[in-house]
């Protein structure tokens, strides 16, 4: 439920709002729905990653563009180990490293702030 709501609401808002809009979405939804801190963290992180990677793959497939490869090459230019990897994989890896902790800690923060204000009995 939580997972689905983050993906849906986060997806719709991400279309219009800045990249970090997923953070308040996770915060609010976890405040409301998350059962435990760990639950909040991991569901938020997975949901956000699903959203970002899903949309990235969608764009890549639909456009058939080589842009991901080129941008990945610009970022990995000085790291030969990474140059053999397909660009979209590197792009997805970076996207995951960005959005997973942002969403995870935002979800965690939602639960913890709720517990601060309404301590569980």
């Amino acid at each position: 439920m939580l997972y689905l709501l983050i993906v849906l609401i986060g997806g719709v808002l991400s279309y219009f709002a800045p990249w970090w809009i997923i953070a308040p979405v996770c915060f609010i939804l976890c405040w409301w729905l998350a059962r435990k801190p760990a639950h909040a963290f991991w569901v938020s992180a997975f949901a956000a990653v699903t959203l970002w990677l899903g949309y990235a793959v969608y764009l890549q497939v639909v456009t058939g563009s080589g842009l991901a490869d080129n941008v990945a090459a610009i970022f990995t230019g000085s790291m030969p180990v990474l140059t053999d990897m397909p660009g979209i994989v590197i792009v997805m890896l970076v996207a995951t490293l960005v959005i997973a902790p942002v969403a995870g800690f935002s979800g965690l923060a939602g639960v913890q702030m709720k517990r601060l204000i309404h301590p569980p009995r």
Partner: peptide, 29 residues
């Protein structure tokens, strides 16, 4: 956790040296 989340958003929302703001640039949206 709230401070960590805010700090991460700050880090990924801004440019560091030659690194562009990773959050903005790598968001597929």
């Amino acid at each position: 956790p709230l401070f960590v989340a805010l700090a991460l958003i700050y880090v990924f929302h801004n440019s560091w040296g030659v690194l562009p703001p990773l959050g903005k640039v790598f968001s597929p949206f």
